[in-house]
Design a protein around this nucleic acid. Structure first.
Ligand SMILES: [Mn+2]
Ligand SMILES: [Mn+2]
Ligand SMILES: [Mn+2]
Ligand SMILES: [Mn+2]
Lengths: 218, 218
DNA sequence: AAATAAAATTAGTCTTGCCTAATTTTATTT
DNA sequence: AAATAAAATTAGGCAAGACTAATTTTATTT
Protein backbone atom coordinates (compact mmCIF):
# COMPACT_ATOMS: atom_id res chain seq x y z
CA UNK A 1 0.00 0.00 0.00
CA UNK A 2 0.98 3.60 -0.45
CA UNK A 3 1.56 6.32 2.10
CA UNK A 4 -0.54 9.44 2.15
CA UNK A 5 2.25 11.43 0.51
CA UNK A 6 2.84 8.86 -2.18
CA UNK A 7 -0.85 8.95 -2.99
CA UNK A 8 -0.89 12.72 -3.21
CA UNK A 9 2.05 12.70 -5.59
CA UNK A 10 0.48 9.99 -7.70
CA UNK A 11 -2.74 11.92 -7.96
CA UNK A 12 -0.88 15.11 -8.78
CA UNK A 13 1.07 13.45 -11.59
CA UNK A 14 -2.14 11.94 -12.90
CA UNK A 15 -3.81 15.35 -12.95
CA UNK A 16 -0.92 17.07 -14.68
CA UNK A 17 -0.90 14.34 -17.26
CA UNK A 18 -4.62 14.69 -17.95
CA UNK A 19 -4.62 18.47 -17.90
CA UNK A 20 -1.79 19.23 -20.25
CA UNK A 21 -0.80 16.00 -21.90
CA UNK A 22 2.58 17.66 -21.69
CA UNK A 23 6.00 16.80 -20.26
CA UNK A 24 5.75 16.50 -16.49
CA UNK A 25 8.82 17.99 -14.83
CA UNK A 26 9.89 18.01 -11.18
CA UNK A 27 9.30 21.76 -11.12
CA UNK A 28 5.74 21.37 -12.37
CA UNK A 29 5.00 18.80 -9.68
CA UNK A 30 6.63 20.96 -7.04
CA UNK A 31 4.56 23.95 -8.06
CA UNK A 32 1.35 21.99 -8.15
CA UNK A 33 1.86 20.54 -4.68
CA UNK A 34 3.43 23.61 -3.13
CA UNK A 35 6.57 21.62 -2.33
CA UNK A 36 10.23 22.22 -2.98
CA UNK A 37 11.70 20.65 -6.17
CA UNK A 38 14.30 18.89 -4.02
CA UNK A 39 11.51 17.09 -2.19
CA UNK A 40 9.96 16.10 -5.49
CA UNK A 41 13.24 14.54 -6.59
CA UNK A 42 13.19 12.44 -3.40
CA UNK A 43 9.68 11.23 -4.09
CA UNK A 44 10.42 10.55 -7.75
CA UNK A 45 13.05 8.13 -6.54
CA UNK A 46 10.59 6.41 -4.21
CA UNK A 47 7.81 6.09 -6.78
CA UNK A 48 10.31 4.85 -9.34
CA UNK A 49 11.51 2.17 -6.91
CA UNK A 50 7.88 1.15 -6.40
CA UNK A 51 7.49 1.00 -10.20
CA UNK A 52 4.61 3.45 -10.20
CA UNK A 53 6.35 5.95 -12.47
CA UNK A 54 9.15 6.09 -15.01
CA UNK A 55 11.32 9.17 -15.11
CA UNK A 56 13.30 10.15 -18.13
CA UNK A 57 15.04 13.53 -18.27
CA UNK A 58 13.85 13.93 -21.87
CA UNK A 59 10.28 12.75 -21.51
CA UNK A 60 9.66 13.79 -17.92
CA UNK A 61 7.64 11.75 -15.44
CA UNK A 62 5.19 9.15 -16.71
CA UNK A 63 2.89 6.82 -14.81
CA UNK A 64 3.35 3.09 -15.35
CA UNK A 65 0.26 0.95 -15.93
CA UNK A 66 0.21 0.19 -12.20
CA UNK A 67 0.70 3.84 -11.28
CA UNK A 68 -2.15 4.82 -13.55
CA UNK A 69 -4.44 2.22 -12.06
CA UNK A 70 -3.60 3.29 -8.51
CA UNK A 71 -3.99 6.99 -9.29
CA UNK A 72 -7.36 6.35 -10.88
CA UNK A 73 -8.62 4.64 -7.75
CA UNK A 74 -7.55 7.56 -5.59
CA UNK A 75 -9.39 9.94 -7.91
CA UNK A 76 -12.40 7.63 -7.75
CA UNK A 77 -12.45 7.80 -3.96
CA UNK A 78 -11.95 11.57 -3.98
CA UNK A 79 -14.86 12.20 -6.30
CA UNK A 80 -17.20 9.74 -4.63
CA UNK A 81 -16.58 11.36 -1.26
CA UNK A 82 -17.27 14.76 -2.81
CA UNK A 83 -20.65 13.53 -3.98
CA UNK A 84 -21.35 12.19 -0.50
CA UNK A 85 -20.40 15.44 1.20
CA UNK A 86 -22.55 17.52 -1.11
CA UNK A 87 -25.57 15.29 -1.52
CA UNK A 88 -25.81 13.65 1.85
CA UNK A 89 -24.25 16.10 4.24
CA UNK A 90 -25.35 19.32 2.56
CA UNK A 91 -21.99 20.99 2.01
CA UNK A 92 -21.63 23.51 -0.81
CA UNK A 93 -19.39 22.76 -3.74
CA UNK A 94 -16.68 25.15 -2.60
CA UNK A 95 -16.28 23.33 0.73
CA UNK A 96 -15.92 19.71 -0.29
CA UNK A 97 -12.56 19.49 -2.01
CA UNK A 98 -10.34 19.81 1.05
CA UNK A 99 -12.30 17.28 3.07
CA UNK A 100 -12.28 14.81 0.18
CA UNK A 101 -8.53 15.40 0.00
CA UNK A 102 -8.33 13.60 3.37
CA UNK A 103 -11.12 11.08 2.89
CA UNK A 104 -9.60 9.76 -0.34
CA UNK A 105 -6.80 8.14 1.68
CA UNK A 106 -9.01 5.91 3.84
CA UNK A 107 -7.98 2.36 3.12
CA UNK A 108 -10.46 -0.44 2.86
CA UNK A 109 -10.97 -2.98 0.12
CA UNK A 110 -14.69 -2.47 -0.35
CA UNK A 111 -15.30 1.08 0.88
CA UNK A 112 -15.29 2.86 -2.48
CA UNK A 113 -17.59 0.30 -4.06
CA UNK A 114 -20.06 0.44 -1.18
CA UNK A 115 -20.03 4.21 -1.23
CA UNK A 116 -20.55 4.16 -4.99
CA UNK A 117 -23.57 1.92 -4.59
CA UNK A 118 -24.93 3.99 -1.70
CA UNK A 119 -24.72 7.11 -3.84
CA UNK A 120 -26.46 5.44 -6.78
CA UNK A 121 -23.40 5.03 -9.01
CA UNK A 122 -22.95 8.70 -9.93
CA UNK A 123 -21.19 9.41 -13.23
CA UNK A 124 -19.89 12.86 -12.36
CA UNK A 125 -18.73 14.58 -9.19
CA UNK A 126 -20.17 17.92 -8.04
CA UNK A 127 -17.60 19.83 -10.12
CA UNK A 128 -18.57 17.93 -13.26
CA UNK A 129 -15.52 15.67 -13.27
CA UNK A 130 -16.18 12.07 -14.28
CA UNK A 131 -15.93 9.45 -11.54
CA UNK A 132 -13.80 6.46 -12.54
CA UNK A 133 -15.56 3.12 -12.16
CA UNK A 134 -13.95 0.30 -10.19
CA UNK A 135 -12.47 -0.98 -13.46
CA UNK A 136 -10.92 2.41 -14.23
CA UNK A 137 -13.32 3.38 -17.02
CA UNK A 138 -15.12 6.68 -16.76
CA UNK A 139 -17.54 8.94 -18.61
CA UNK A 140 -16.44 11.67 -20.97
CA UNK A 141 -14.49 14.67 -19.70
CA UNK A 142 -15.63 17.97 -21.12
CA UNK A 143 -13.02 20.17 -22.74
CA UNK A 144 -14.79 23.05 -24.50
CA UNK A 145 -14.89 26.21 -22.42
CA UNK A 146 -17.34 29.07 -22.48
CA UNK A 147 -14.56 31.15 -24.02
CA UNK A 148 -14.46 28.78 -27.00
CA UNK A 149 -18.14 29.26 -27.74
CA UNK A 150 -19.11 31.46 -30.68
CA UNK A 151 -21.33 34.45 -29.92
CA UNK A 152 -25.02 33.75 -30.30
CA UNK A 153 -24.82 30.12 -29.18
CA UNK A 154 -26.38 28.56 -26.16
CA UNK A 155 -24.76 25.98 -23.90
CA UNK A 156 -25.09 24.00 -20.71
CA UNK A 157 -22.57 24.25 -17.87
CA UNK A 158 -20.94 20.81 -17.72
CA UNK A 159 -18.03 21.24 -15.32
CA UNK A 160 -15.69 23.71 -13.67
CA UNK A 161 -12.06 23.77 -14.68
CA UNK A 162 -11.03 25.85 -11.67
CA UNK A 163 -12.08 24.53 -8.28
CA UNK A 164 -10.81 27.33 -6.08
CA UNK A 165 -13.19 28.75 -3.50
CA UNK A 166 -12.91 32.16 -5.13
CA UNK A 167 -14.27 30.88 -8.43
CA UNK A 168 -16.91 28.56 -6.97
CA UNK A 169 -18.25 31.23 -4.66
CA UNK A 170 -18.46 33.64 -7.57
CA UNK A 171 -20.49 31.03 -9.44
CA UNK A 172 -22.81 30.67 -6.45
CA UNK A 173 -23.28 34.44 -6.48
CA UNK A 174 -24.06 34.39 -10.21
CA UNK A 175 -26.46 31.50 -9.67
CA UNK A 176 -24.49 29.24 -11.96
CA UNK A 177 -24.42 25.53 -11.31
CA UNK A 178 -23.76 22.33 -13.24
CA UNK A 179 -26.62 22.15 -15.72
CA UNK A 180 -27.31 25.89 -15.89
CA UNK A 181 -28.04 27.19 -19.42
CA UNK A 182 -25.89 30.06 -20.62
CA UNK A 183 -26.16 32.04 -23.82
CA UNK A 184 -23.10 33.87 -25.11
CA UNK A 185 -24.37 37.15 -26.43
CA UNK A 186 -21.20 38.99 -27.34
CA UNK A 187 -17.45 38.75 -27.08
CA UNK A 188 -15.81 42.15 -26.47
CA UNK A 189 -12.82 42.25 -28.78
CA UNK A 190 -10.84 44.69 -26.62
CA UNK A 191 -10.18 42.21 -23.78
CA UNK A 192 -12.24 39.12 -24.73
CA UNK A 193 -14.75 39.78 -21.97
CA UNK A 194 -17.97 37.84 -22.44
CA UNK A 195 -21.49 39.21 -22.31
CA UNK A 196 -23.73 36.33 -21.28
CA UNK A 197 -27.27 35.59 -20.24
CA UNK A 198 -27.67 33.10 -17.41
CA UNK A 199 -30.81 30.97 -17.58
CA UNK A 200 -32.43 33.52 -19.87
CA UNK A 201 -32.03 36.36 -17.39
CA UNK A 202 -30.60 39.84 -17.96
CA UNK A 203 -27.09 40.23 -19.34
CA UNK A 204 -23.93 39.97 -17.25
CA UNK A 205 -20.36 40.55 -18.30
CA UNK A 206 -17.63 38.17 -17.22
CA UNK A 207 -13.90 38.08 -17.89
CA UNK A 208 -11.99 35.93 -20.34
CA UNK A 209 -10.42 34.12 -17.41
CA UNK A 210 -13.91 33.32 -16.17
CA UNK A 211 -14.91 31.98 -19.58
CA UNK A 212 -11.86 29.75 -19.73
CA UNK A 213 -12.70 28.26 -16.33
CA UNK A 214 -16.16 27.00 -17.22
CA UNK A 215 -16.46 23.79 -19.20
CA UNK A 216 -19.53 23.49 -21.36
CA UNK A 217 -21.62 21.06 -23.30
CA UNK A 218 -23.50 22.02 -26.44
CA UNK B 1 -4.85 20.87 16.08
CA UNK B 2 -3.50 17.46 16.93
CA UNK B 3 -1.59 14.96 14.85
CA UNK B 4 -2.99 11.54 14.12
CA UNK B 5 -0.69 9.98 16.72
CA UNK B 6 -1.56 12.50 19.36
CA UNK B 7 -5.24 11.79 18.78
CA UNK B 8 -4.72 8.06 19.06
CA UNK B 9 -2.89 8.47 22.35
CA UNK B 10 -5.56 10.81 23.69
CA UNK B 11 -8.29 8.37 22.81
CA UNK B 12 -6.35 5.50 24.33
CA UNK B 13 -5.87 7.36 27.60
CA UNK B 14 -9.54 8.27 27.62
CA UNK B 15 -10.52 4.65 27.15
CA UNK B 16 -8.20 3.35 29.86
CA UNK B 17 -9.59 5.98 32.21
CA UNK B 18 -13.20 4.98 31.50
CA UNK B 19 -12.54 1.25 31.56
CA UNK B 20 -10.66 0.88 34.78
CA UNK B 21 -10.92 4.17 36.60
CA UNK B 22 -7.45 3.11 37.69
CA UNK B 23 -3.94 4.56 37.58
CA UNK B 24 -2.85 4.94 33.96
CA UNK B 25 0.81 4.03 33.56
CA UNK B 26 3.13 4.31 30.57
CA UNK B 27 3.22 0.52 30.39
CA UNK B 28 -0.56 0.30 30.27
CA UNK B 29 -0.68 2.80 27.42
CA UNK B 30 2.14 1.01 25.60
CA UNK B 31 0.34 -2.30 25.90
CA UNK B 32 -2.95 -0.90 24.75
CA UNK B 33 -1.46 0.73 21.65
CA UNK B 34 1.03 -2.00 20.90
CA UNK B 35 3.88 0.49 21.22
CA UNK B 36 7.11 0.47 23.17
CA UNK B 37 7.05 2.15 26.61
CA UNK B 38 9.92 4.37 25.50
CA UNK B 39 7.74 5.78 22.73
CA UNK B 40 4.95 6.40 25.22
CA UNK B 41 7.30 8.42 27.41
CA UNK B 42 8.07 10.62 24.38
CA UNK B 43 4.41 11.22 23.71
CA UNK B 44 3.63 11.87 27.37
CA UNK B 45 6.09 14.73 27.15
CA UNK B 46 4.40 16.12 24.03
CA UNK B 47 0.87 15.88 25.38
CA UNK B 48 2.01 17.43 28.65
CA UNK B 49 3.54 20.36 26.76
CA UNK B 50 0.25 20.78 24.95
CA UNK B 51 -1.53 20.73 28.33
CA UNK B 52 -3.75 17.85 27.35
CA UNK B 53 -2.58 15.57 30.15
CA UNK B 54 -0.91 15.82 33.55
CA UNK B 55 1.53 13.13 34.50
CA UNK B 56 2.44 12.37 38.06
CA UNK B 57 4.53 9.33 38.92
CA UNK B 58 2.21 8.63 41.86
CA UNK B 59 -1.14 9.21 40.19
CA UNK B 60 -0.23 8.20 36.65
CA UNK B 61 -1.53 9.96 33.53
CA UNK B 62 -4.66 12.09 33.75
CA UNK B 63 -6.47 14.07 31.09
CA UNK B 64 -6.87 17.80 31.66
CA UNK B 65 -10.25 19.39 31.01
CA UNK B 66 -9.07 20.26 27.50
CA UNK B 67 -7.68 16.77 26.93
CA UNK B 68 -10.96 15.26 28.02
CA UNK B 69 -12.93 17.51 25.71
CA UNK B 70 -10.69 16.73 22.75
CA UNK B 71 -10.74 12.99 23.45
CA UNK B 72 -14.52 13.02 23.67
CA UNK B 73 -14.81 14.61 20.25
CA UNK B 74 -12.55 11.97 18.71
CA UNK B 75 -14.69 9.26 20.27
CA UNK B 76 -17.78 11.06 18.94
CA UNK B 77 -16.41 11.01 15.43
CA UNK B 78 -15.35 7.37 15.72
CA UNK B 79 -18.75 6.18 16.84
CA UNK B 80 -20.69 8.27 14.36
CA UNK B 81 -18.63 6.89 11.49
CA UNK B 82 -19.26 3.38 12.80
CA UNK B 83 -22.98 3.99 12.61
CA UNK B 84 -22.57 5.30 9.07
CA UNK B 85 -20.55 2.31 7.93
CA UNK B 86 -23.02 -0.17 9.36
CA UNK B 87 -26.32 1.51 8.58
CA UNK B 88 -25.57 3.20 5.29
CA UNK B 89 -22.84 1.11 3.72
CA UNK B 90 -23.94 -2.27 4.98
CA UNK B 91 -20.80 -3.40 6.77
CA UNK B 92 -21.07 -5.92 9.60
CA UNK B 93 -20.21 -4.90 13.13
CA UNK B 94 -16.92 -6.76 13.14
CA UNK B 95 -15.65 -4.79 10.12
CA UNK B 96 -16.28 -1.19 11.09
CA UNK B 97 -13.86 -0.48 13.91
CA UNK B 98 -10.66 -0.34 11.89
CA UNK B 99 -12.15 1.90 9.21
CA UNK B 100 -13.58 4.26 11.83
CA UNK B 101 -10.12 4.29 13.39
CA UNK B 102 -9.01 6.20 10.28
CA UNK B 103 -12.16 8.21 9.62
CA UNK B 104 -12.16 9.65 13.14
CA UNK B 105 -9.13 11.77 12.23
CA UNK B 106 -10.73 13.68 9.35
CA UNK B 107 -10.63 17.33 10.29
CA UNK B 108 -13.46 19.66 9.53
CA UNK B 109 -15.36 21.99 11.81
CA UNK B 110 -18.84 20.85 10.90
CA UNK B 111 -18.37 17.31 9.65
CA UNK B 112 -19.29 15.44 12.84
CA UNK B 113 -22.39 17.54 13.39
CA UNK B 114 -23.58 17.09 9.82
CA UNK B 115 -22.96 13.37 9.99
CA UNK B 116 -24.81 13.21 13.30
CA UNK B 117 -27.81 14.93 11.73
CA UNK B 118 -27.65 12.76 8.61
CA UNK B 119 -27.72 9.64 10.79
CA UNK B 120 -30.67 10.90 12.83
CA UNK B 121 -28.74 11.74 16.01
CA UNK B 122 -28.06 8.16 17.15
CA UNK B 123 -27.53 7.67 20.88
CA UNK B 124 -25.46 4.49 20.64
CA UNK B 125 -22.97 3.09 18.18
CA UNK B 126 -23.29 -0.40 16.67
CA UNK B 127 -21.41 -1.91 19.61
CA UNK B 128 -23.75 -0.31 22.12
CA UNK B 129 -21.33 2.42 23.18
CA UNK B 130 -22.90 5.83 23.79
CA UNK B 131 -22.10 8.53 21.24
CA UNK B 132 -21.00 11.81 22.86
CA UNK B 133 -23.05 14.82 21.77
CA UNK B 134 -21.30 17.92 20.44
CA UNK B 135 -21.35 19.31 23.98
CA UNK B 136 -19.64 16.22 25.36
CA UNK B 137 -22.70 14.76 27.11
CA UNK B 138 -23.72 11.23 26.32
CA UNK B 139 -26.22 8.54 27.19
CA UNK B 140 -25.65 5.93 29.88
CA UNK B 141 -22.91 3.36 29.50
CA UNK B 142 -23.94 -0.13 30.50
CA UNK B 143 -21.81 -1.94 33.05
CA UNK B 144 -23.62 -5.11 34.09
CA UNK B 145 -22.44 -8.19 32.23
CA UNK B 146 -24.25 -11.39 31.46
CA UNK B 147 -21.96 -13.06 33.99
CA UNK B 148 -23.35 -10.80 36.73
CA UNK B 149 -26.92 -11.89 36.06
CA UNK B 150 -28.56 -14.31 38.47
CA UNK B 151 -29.85 -17.58 37.02
CA UNK B 152 -33.47 -17.51 35.98
CA UNK B 153 -33.43 -13.84 34.92
CA UNK B 154 -33.99 -12.45 31.47
CA UNK B 155 -32.05 -9.56 29.93
CA UNK B 156 -31.48 -7.59 26.75
CA UNK B 157 -28.06 -7.33 25.11
CA UNK B 158 -27.08 -3.67 25.46
CA UNK B 159 -23.47 -3.54 24.34
CA UNK B 160 -20.31 -5.54 23.74
CA UNK B 161 -17.36 -5.05 26.02
CA UNK B 162 -14.96 -6.82 23.68
CA UNK B 163 -14.90 -5.60 20.09
CA UNK B 164 -12.43 -8.08 18.61
CA UNK B 165 -13.45 -9.76 15.38
CA UNK B 166 -13.24 -13.12 17.08
CA UNK B 167 -15.91 -12.20 19.62
CA UNK B 168 -18.15 -10.29 17.21
CA UNK B 169 -18.09 -13.08 14.65
CA UNK B 170 -18.96 -15.57 17.35
CA UNK B 171 -21.95 -13.40 18.25
CA UNK B 172 -23.02 -13.32 14.61
CA UNK B 173 -22.85 -17.11 14.57
CA UNK B 174 -24.94 -17.30 17.74
CA UNK B 175 -27.41 -14.82 16.24
CA UNK B 176 -26.84 -12.36 19.05
CA UNK B 177 -27.12 -8.67 18.36
CA UNK B 178 -27.75 -5.47 20.31
CA UNK B 179 -31.33 -5.84 21.53
CA UNK B 180 -31.40 -9.64 21.53
CA UNK B 181 -33.19 -11.16 24.56
CA UNK B 182 -31.21 -13.68 26.58
CA UNK B 183 -32.34 -15.80 29.50
CA UNK B 184 -29.72 -17.13 31.88
CA UNK B 185 -30.86 -20.62 32.75
CA UNK B 186 -28.01 -21.95 34.81
CA UNK B 187 -24.53 -21.10 35.95
CA UNK B 188 -22.26 -24.16 36.11
CA UNK B 189 -20.39 -23.87 39.41
CA UNK B 190 -17.38 -25.88 38.20
CA UNK B 191 -16.11 -23.24 35.73
CA UNK B 192 -18.82 -20.57 35.75
CA UNK B 193 -20.00 -21.53 32.28
CA UNK B 194 -23.41 -20.15 31.44
CA UNK B 195 -26.35 -22.04 30.05
CA UNK B 196 -28.47 -19.55 28.18
CA UNK B 197 -31.44 -19.35 25.87
CA UNK B 198 -31.16 -16.86 23.01
CA UNK B 199 -34.43 -15.28 21.93
CA UNK B 200 -36.34 -18.14 23.52
CA UNK B 201 -34.59 -20.79 21.46
CA UNK B 202 -32.95 -24.00 22.61
CA UNK B 203 -30.18 -23.88 25.23
CA UNK B 204 -26.58 -23.05 24.47
CA UNK B 205 -23.61 -23.06 26.80
CA UNK B 206 -21.08 -20.25 26.74
CA UNK B 207 -17.94 -19.59 28.76
CA UNK B 208 -17.46 -17.25 31.69
CA UNK B 209 -15.23 -15.09 29.49
CA UNK B 210 -18.06 -14.82 27.01
CA UNK B 211 -20.48 -13.77 29.77
CA UNK B 212 -18.10 -11.09 30.96
CA UNK B 213 -17.83 -9.64 27.46
CA UNK B 214 -21.53 -8.98 26.97
CA UNK B 215 -23.08 -5.93 28.61
CA UNK B 216 -26.73 -6.19 29.43
CA UNK B 217 -29.76 -4.21 30.37
CA UNK B 218 -32.48 -5.57 32.60
C1' DA C 1 17.31 -4.55 55.04
C1' DA C 2 19.09 -6.71 50.98
C1' DA C 3 18.18 -8.82 46.91
C1' DT C 4 15.53 -9.14 43.00
C1' DA C 5 12.16 -7.96 39.69
C1' DA C 6 9.49 -4.69 37.26
C1' DA C 7 8.68 -0.20 35.49
C1' DA C 8 10.26 4.10 33.82
C1' DT C 9 13.48 6.74 31.67
C1' DT C 10 17.43 8.11 28.83
C1' DA C 11 20.47 7.82 24.95
C1' DG C 12 21.03 6.92 20.54
C1' DT C 13 19.15 5.23 15.92
C1' DC C 14 15.98 4.82 11.97
C1' DT C 15 12.46 6.17 8.37
C1' DT C 16 9.43 9.41 6.19
C1' DG C 17 8.86 13.59 4.20
C1' DC C 18 9.93 17.81 4.12
C1' DC C 19 13.43 21.90 3.98
C1' DT C 20 17.74 25.19 2.49
C1' DA C 21 21.97 25.96 0.27
C1' DA C 22 25.29 24.60 -2.99
C1' DT C 23 26.34 22.50 -7.22
C1' DT C 24 25.73 20.54 -11.63
C1' DT C 25 23.26 20.04 -15.82
C1' DT C 26 20.44 21.77 -19.49
C1' DA C 27 18.31 25.63 -22.16
C1' DT C 28 18.16 30.08 -23.81
C1' DT C 29 20.19 34.38 -25.14
C1' DT C 30 23.34 37.33 -26.92
C1' DA D 1 30.34 29.68 -29.23
C1' DA D 2 30.22 31.96 -24.98
C1' DA D 3 27.46 33.89 -21.47
C1' DT D 4 23.56 33.69 -18.79
C1' DA D 5 19.45 31.87 -16.86
C1' DA D 6 16.66 28.15 -15.44
C1' DA D 7 16.01 23.52 -13.93
C1' DA D 8 17.56 19.50 -11.67
C1' DT D 9 20.19 17.35 -8.41
C1' DT D 10 23.07 16.56 -4.35
C1' DA D 11 24.36 17.25 0.39
C1' DG D 12 23.12 18.00 4.74
C1' DG D 13 19.55 18.96 8.25
C1' DC D 14 15.22 18.86 10.87
C1' DA D 15 10.85 17.17 13.21
C1' DA D 16 7.70 13.41 14.10
C1' DG D 17 7.16 9.09 15.75
C1' DA D 18 8.64 4.91 16.19
C1' DC D 19 12.46 1.49 17.81
C1' DT D 20 16.51 -1.04 20.83
C1' DA D 21 19.68 -1.19 24.44
C1' DA D 22 21.32 0.61 28.63
C1' DT D 23 20.41 2.72 32.90
C1' DT D 24 17.91 4.41 36.78
C1' DT D 25 14.04 4.36 39.79
C1' DT D 26 10.44 2.07 42.24
C1' DA D 27 8.19 -2.08 44.03
C1' DT D 28 8.17 -6.64 45.66
C1' DT D 29 10.25 -10.60 47.74
C1' DT D 30 12.98 -13.01 50.58
MN1 LIG E 1 -5.13 13.90 -0.50
MN1 LIG F 1 -14.21 17.48 -7.69
MN1 LIG G 1 -7.43 6.33 15.04
MN1 LIG H 1 -17.78 1.04 18.54
Amino acid sequence: MHTLSEENYLKCIYRLWQDKGQKITPTAIAESLGNNPASVVDMIRKLTDKQLIVYDKKKGVELTAQGQKDATLIVRRHRLWEVFLLEKLGYHWDEIHDIAEELEHIKDATLADRLDKFLGFPEYDPHGDPIPKANGKMAKRYSTTLADLKPGSQCRVAAVKDTTSAFLQYLIKLNINIGTKIQLIEKISFDSSLVISIDGNERTTVSQKFGESLLIDM
